[in-house]
Design a protein around this nucleic acid. Structure first.
Lengths: 353, 353
DNA sequence: CTCGTCTGTGCTATCGATTGCACGAACAAG
DNA sequence: CTTGTTCGTGCAATCGATAGCACAGACGAG
């Protein structure tokens, strides 16, 4: 009664939360025993294990992962650097990333979401929280974050981006996607083509446009009209108005928006100007985002295999976390064509080889 | 040469990352001195501080926040439980939350994003990582997470939701928003009204519908037609088709989608059916999401003051983290009317009092 | 009856950083 | 010259959990 008045209350550590130590005192055993019992160490007798489990449950014990990380060397955290979520693609990516990471027992530390480069202070957080790995999908200039990761040996995987210098990457085969769409449009008889690009510094945008252009060139046609410059609905819309303003004789007959969001902007502008899509102009995109599949658009597009991309990305991270210093790799996954109603296309292939 | 062969290499701790200890050894001082120097403790002499800072920079030292949290009792982490990001509202919310949290020196632990309730294992992570607080915006059934937070005294704030039992909340004045729109539509001469609701278990949806209905009742009109039941574009679209199928004489003249995403679905269906919006039917929404303001929609809506909501939410968290056991509170912020082109409305108020 | 061999637990160092307290030196006042 | 400050550092405990090693008892074999 001198030093401790409330035996139970004082049994609780600072935060009010039970700890291995408080449980150990209650059970009259050592902390190591508690720790082992809770981790189902076979060396602990079943009775003891049960007793401690019951005590833990009663006390509402939750292990402190921070403390565990300190000794274990693994935080269980994955850093996530996300692009501008105005583009539903990133939102969808995030949703799937959270779910898949959780399924593997990882938590996501959300470091950046939005346009523009990641701030230095934010990139520092990657190191401060000792993330086990990092997923980067941000559009541009995240080379900064990438460099920091590389310099500190944080496993790094870029999704939907190809690495500039460091790290592995998982991406859709953008070149092939562009080529596939060009091929379809050409087979449908379109001759005057246009490409609306996003940010010229992103591999995603340039590769798609390039794949498209190369296929057009292969058909012996003049290069497609190049428009755009920013990956947003607004840009697509503006480009759409420009196209609408052209005379029907010079106007492109088919337009590729290198991302669905661009294509949607183009469609909106064209239709607003009274130009029928797909009657007057065919519009196609790439990404396969949800809104583009819905009624007013029903965009013909090449959908990225998002679920697989994330799965492969996490695989790559895991390999590196386990310390296998394989060469960095770039994984390309093939996209899947979705035939919507935004373009006049040749009939489905007979599929008779 | 006996025990340590590579003095510099062995100076590096396990992870290869510099620590206060490794820096202390290099500088020939105690770890406490290093710690204090790096935290700009005035007791350390300027020369020493400078010397250690230089050493830290050279070694690429980054403090281990996990270790710091252990003694400090604060993790610097905020848990974020997010609703279905198919609704751009949540994506926008997340983007602003990341930015504002970062500005206050907090990082976000992304625990759940998507439809459906949060899993128990996920909610546990809130405790395991010792988050300093939690932001919940998930649509439904996160009472589980809320209960866990409450039981463990984790400060909790719900955004865009009103607390069921525990925690504080920041929300738009949904009732007023519904009433405001009803008033406008009535003043424009609309008489047959309809409401498309979201999930009936979310306060957001019911309050908006109720505010709308009450205003309609106050005008002595029969209650608005109640439709919907799920907060998605698909539901809005389906409802839109039902409305389109009604005869022009019985069809509602104006429709409130309790969220923009619902309203967009309604618009899409109506227009597809050849029913002009706003010529034949006025459509209004609530939320103020980006896509709804763009060309094909230009929805008339009441925008939530998202930036402010998050700011207030973080304020509330901060107060509680600082340990001021004020009563839990609900903060209601007034929304802002955005006049789009999706509804026939009375002319702007002369504003002459 | 004694000597291994297991089994089940306890003791203690450790992870990286922070912090209360002690300690030595320099220096001013008496 | 002694005493009392002030200043700058070091020592060691602490946060919560884990793991290597030691150790006590039970038990079968010789």
């Amino acid at each position: 009664m001198k030093e401790s008045s409330l035996p139970v209350a004082l049994d609780m550590p600072r935060g009010g939360r039970a700890t291995v130590a408080s449980l150990a005192r209650r059970a009259g055993v050592a902390t190591s025993t508690v720790s082992r019992a809770l981790r189902n160490d076979p060396r602990i007798s079943p009775e003891m294990r049960e007793r401690i489990a019951a005590l833990a449950l009663e006390a509402g014990y939750t292990p402190n992962v921070l403390a565990r990380s300190l000794v274990g060397g693994q935080s269980g955290l994955i850093g996530l650097v996300l692009g501008p979520v105005e583009n539903p693609f990133y939102a969808e990516l995030m949703q799937k990333a959270v779910a898949q990471a959780a399924a593997r027992g990882w938590r996501l530390l959300l470091l950046h979401a939005g346009p523009g480069p990641i701030e230095d202070a934010t990139a520092e957080a990657l190191l401060q929280y000792r993330v086990d790995g990092c997923l980067i999908t941000s559009a541009e200039l995240s080379s900064r974050a990438a460099a920091i990761c590389a310099a500190n040996k944080v496993p790094l995987v870029m999704i939907n981006r190809v690495a500039w210098e460091h790290g592995s990457a998982v991406s859709c085969d953008n070149h092939a996607a562009g080529a596939l769409l060009a091929d379809l449009l050409l087979r449908a008889g379109h001759r005057r083509l246009a490409v609306v690009s996003g940010n010229a510094r992103t591999s995603t945008s340039t590769e798609r446009a390039e794949g498209f252009a190369r296929q057009v060139a292969a058909a012996g046609l003049p290069p497609p009209l190049a428009l755009g410059g920013d990956n947003s609905h607004a840009t697509g819309y503006q480009v759409g108005r420009e196209i609408a303003a052209m005379s029907p004789g010079t106007r492109p007959e088919a337009v590729l928006g290198v991302s669905d969001i661009l294509a949607m902007g183009v469609m909106d502008a064209l239709r607003e100007a009274g130009i029928g899509v797909p009657e007057a102009v065919s519009v196609v995109g790439i990404d396969g985002i949800g809104p583009a599949r819905r009624p007013p658009y029903e965009l013909t597009t090449v959908a990225q295999p998002l679920e697989c991309m994330i799965e492969r990305g996490l695989d790559l991270l895991q390999e590196r976390m386990r310390g296998r210093p394989r060469a960095e790799e770039v994984v390309l996954l093939r996209g899947r064509l979705i035939r919507g109603r935004s373009a006049r296309l040749p009939a489905e292939k007979p599929d008779r080889t």
